[in-house]
Amino acid sequence: MRKDIADIELADRVFAPHYAAAELCAVMLPSVALRERPSEDARAASQLVLGEGFAIIDNEGGWAWGYGLHDHYVGYVPSDALGECAEPDHVVTAAAALVFAEADIKAPVVQTLPMGSRFAATADGKFLKTAEGYIHSRHAGPIGAVESDPVAVAERLIGQPYRWGGRGGEGVDCSGLVQIALALCGIAAPRDTDQQREIGTDIPDGEPLKRGDLIFFPGHVGLMADAETLVHANAHWMAVVAEPLADVVARLKPDHDQPITAQRRVLA
């Protein structure tokens, strides 16, 4: 909701001068920033990737205001980044997928799609034929074929630049990395670090950490690759890295009496 308008689904809970029914559409670009204000100069609150759904509540001046269907995160995206698309049945599982003009790895590349992009496709040999071109089958898979190891997903993004608000399109932030990694394993996660602290169950103090555990710091989160190694997107290295958890704690200790604020176990 805004001061002037709200989703009609909230009519029984909040007052607004106007209500509007959500217009459902999808992202038509490889990625687009979800901004705090209707301006290209506004800070990115999050990011949407190809094929993800978006609910438009207001559409004015070339900007659509609404929320992403996967996590209900609210913001503005350019109206021309949205449209109707075929029901997606495949998702990019690699760090990035090249879209070739023909079913040939030597053909021109017409587009690059980030991890998590959703699209409709039919099999064509070793490729998937889409409306925009051909994606190699090693870079994507059926939406329903969820993975079992979110850390393995996150590790594919090691080396990708840190980008505030990013969810894989030319960069990713810490909570975006966690959200993407869990999503490909069929686990829905909210967007922000403080919200993600509700995922899973608390790990008692002194219990050994294991692969897949989420470790929270002031305004930050990462996944444990094993009992000692953290995979995280961070502004210190400006990249997704795997490094000793002890190094992260030591780096934060001068500014925080309690560098680790929570430990949560997502996987049994």
Results as ranks from 00 to 15, higher is better:
residue 19 Y to H: 12
residue 260 I to R: 05
residue 172 V to N: 06
residue 203 I to H: 11
residue 110 V to E: 10
residue 187 I to F: 11
residue 179 Q to V: 03
residue 130 T to V: 07
residue 54 F to T: 04
residue 37 R to Q: 13
residue 112 T to N: 04
residue 225 A to Y: 01
residue 200 G to T: 14
residue 9 E to D: 12
residue 1 M to L: 10
residue 240 V to Y: 09
residue 24 L to H: 15
residue 58 D to N: 12
residue 150 P to Q: 07
residue 53 G to N: 11
residue 189 A to F: 03
residue 169 G to Y: 11
residue 162 Y to L: 11
residue 130 T to I: 05
residue 75 G to K: 02
residue 11 A to H: 10
residue 219 G to T: 11
residue 184 L to H: 14
residue 161 P to D: 06
residue 235 A to P: 01
residue 26 A to N: 10
residue 128 L to R: 03
residue 141 G to L: 07
residue 201 T to K: 15
residue 225 A to E: 05
residue 149 D to H: 04
residue 165 G to C: 08
residue 133 G to Y: 04
residue 177 L to S: 05
residue 182 L to S: 14
residue 56 I to E: 05
residue 261 T to Y: 07
residue 159 G to N: 10
residue 217 F to C: 11
residue 244 P to K: 08
residue 122 T to S: 15
residue 45 A to P: 02
residue 65 W to I: 00
residue 172 V to I: 15
residue 203 I to T: 12
residue 151 V to G: 09
residue 56 I to T: 12
residue 70 H to K: 14
residue 63 W to M: 05
residue 42 A to T: 08
residue 235 A to V: 10
residue 7 D to F: 06
residue 27 V to W: 01
residue 228 E to A: 14
residue 64 A to N: 02
residue 250 A to W: 13
residue 172 V to C: 11
residue 207 E to W: 00
residue 149 D to L: 04
residue 137 S to L: 09
residue 1 M to V: 09
residue 50 L to A: 10
residue 157 L to R: 04
residue 72 H to L: 15
residue 81 A to D: 03
residue 187 I to C: 11
residue 234 N to E: 13
residue 169 G to I: 12
residue 21 A to N: 11
residue 131 A to Y: 12
residue 132 E to C: 12
residue 187 I to P: 05
residue 83 G to V: 02
residue 199 I to G: 07
residue 70 H to Y: 10
residue 266 V to K: 08
residue 55 A to D: 12
residue 59 N to E: 06
residue 163 R to T: 06
residue 114 P to E: 02
residue 53 G to I: 13
residue 41 D to C: 08
residue 44 A to D: 03
residue 19 Y to G: 08
residue 164 W to C: 07
residue 111 Q to G: 09
residue 105 I to T: 15
residue 62 G to N: 08
residue 56 I to H: 10
residue 53 G to C: 13
residue 80 D to T: 04
residue 73 Y to M: 09
residue 174 C to F: 09
residue 212 G to T: 13
residue 191 R to I: 03
residue 25 C to W: 05
residue 171 G to H: 01
residue 135 I to Q: 00
residue 229 T to D: 07
residue 233 A to H: 01
residue 179 Q to A: 15
residue 36 E to Q: 14
residue 251 R to I: 00
residue 50 L to M: 10
residue 249 V to T: 14
residue 268 A to R: 13
residue 223 L to C: 04
residue 16 A to S: 14
residue 79 S to T: 06
residue 250 A to M: 12
residue 87 E to P: 08
residue 123 A to S: 14
residue 117 S to M: 08
residue 133 G to F: 01
residue 34 L to V: 03
residue 135 I to S: 04
residue 172 V to E: 09
residue 241 V to C: 07
residue 44 A to N: 03
residue 72 H to E: 14
residue 224 M to A: 04
residue 245 L to V: 05
residue 241 V to D: 03
residue 154 A to C: 13
residue 191 R to D: 01
residue 6 A to R: 00
residue 35 R to Y: 02
residue 241 V to S: 09
residue 127 F to K: 04
residue 200 G to I: 12
residue 250 A to H: 13
residue 12 D to V: 00
residue 237 W to P: 00
residue 30 P to D: 09
residue 128 L to G: 05
residue 42 A to E: 06
residue 56 I to N: 05
residue 215 I to Q: 01
residue 62 G to C: 07
residue 255 D to P: 00
residue 60 E to R: 13
residue 101 A to M: 09
residue 43 R to I: 11
residue 34 L to F: 02
residue 77 V to C: 02
residue 215 I to Y: 01
residue 67 Y to W: 14
residue 179 Q to C: 06
residue 110 V to M: 10
residue 191 R to H: 11
residue 157 L to S: 03
